[in-house]
Simulated scan of single mutants.
Amino acid sequence: MPQQTLGIDLSGRIALVTGSTQGIGHAIATRLAEAGAVVVVNGRDGGRVEDAAARVRDAVPDSTVRGVAADVADADSTAALLEEVPAVDILVNNLGIFGATPALEIDDAEWRRYFEVNVLAGVRLIRAYLPGMMERGFGRVLSISSDSSVVVPAEMVHYGVSKSAGLAVTRGFAKVAAGTGVTVNSVLAGPTHTGGVEEFVEQLVGSDLPWDEAQQKFMREHRPQSLLQRLIEPVEIANMVAYLSSDLASATTGGAVRVDGGYVDSILP
């Protein structure tokens, strides 16, 4: 095997990051662009997609970034995306929804919605892009998962179950790609500082506290297992994604790689 440098170089690779107009997805798109990848930013709203793509270009002036608006939780919209972007080298299934709802109040429609967005959207894209990756002998499929896939929270059981299913999807498709040079992994993100999480924190601890105090209270009362004892910043998730997207991670596949701040109290994953 040829000797590799420790730098992450994604030059010549095409990367699609779903749900990348903000938060973790946008941080991932930016980090992949910094590593040299041609990046496709995705979201449902065309205006927000173009704005997000422009922000990546501003952050990485020599980058090649395009925006494609599509709802990847919808089969027809996904088909339109595949016409625009027929092949990728790096697929990051980042799109996801979450929210606090008492478990006994989650109806069938909401269970289906979480499955459509958090599981089936990623399956559709893997099914579309994986064969080409396998034929070319290189590919990286990454699904952004959550500590909730292992430690299912009582306040959002439907989210935890959907993320647990995502880990099984990753493991199964990694077996499909066995021996082809394509790796398939999940990134297990811990409690991360995004706009959506700020709203979630307010739901649980109230909106009358300054943000720093609210965050500390949230971690203390609702995520006391965290060894980091703070919310993770999106760029910290993006750093792991960039590594797993590179040639350096060629022997890592079928895994749930943790960037959880030590939140999951187990040895594996």
Rank of each mutant, 00 (worst) to 15 (best):
G166N: 11
I232A: 04
A121Q: 06
Q3D: 14
E236R: 09
I237H: 07
S250T: 12
V60I: 05
Q225R: 13
P210H: 12
S266Y: 12
V141N: 01
S245H: 05
V176C: 07
Y159E: 03
A69M: 02
G19I: 02
V141D: 04
D247G: 14
Y263K: 11
I267T: 14
G43C: 04
A256N: 01
R124L: 01
R230T: 04
P61Q: 03
S246K: 02
A59V: 06
R48H: 04
E198N: 13
K175N: 14
L32C: 09
M156S: 14
A249M: 05
V85K: 01
V119R: 04
M219R: 07
K163V: 09
I232F: 06
I267F: 15
S266M: 14
S143G: 15
H222N: 13
A103Q: 10
T183G: 12
A128W: 03
D9N: 13
A178K: 11
Q225K: 12
R223T: 10
P210G: 10
N42V: 05
A168G: 15
V141F: 03
A214S: 10
R230Q: 07
L209G: 12
A27N: 03
G43H: 06
W211P: 09
E236Y: 08
K163S: 09
S143L: 13
V257I: 12
V259S: 04
V85R: 02
L244G: 08
T78L: 01
R223Y: 11
T18S: 10
A128I: 01
S20T: 00
L188N: 08
Y243N: 01
H193C: 05
G190Q: 09
G7E: 13
A242Y: 02
I28A: 02
V169N: 10
M156Y: 11
G255K: 10
P61N: 02
A242D: 03
L10W: 07
A70K: 00
D71L: 00
T101L: 14
A214P: 12
T18F: 07
E34R: 13
A174I: 09
I267V: 14
L188P: 02
I144C: 05
V151C: 14
S77V: 01
G12S: 04
E236K: 06
S245K: 05
T252K: 05
V264R: 00
V85G: 01
K175W: 13
L244M: 08
I126H: 07
I106G: 06
F138I: 04
Q3C: 10
V85D: 01
L130D: 02
V157G: 08
V41D: 00
L10H: 06
I28P: 06
E198K: 15
D265L: 13
T64P: 07
H26N: 01
T252I: 15
Q216E: 15
P269K: 02
R258N: 00
V41L: 04
L6Y: 10
E202W: 13
D265W: 09
I106F: 05
A70E: 00
D208W: 09
Q215R: 14
R112G: 05
F173P: 12
L142Y: 01
P86Y: 05
A121F: 05
R57H: 03
I106V: 15
L268E: 14
V123R: 11
T64S: 14
D108S: 15
T253L: 04
V184N: 07
Q22G: 01
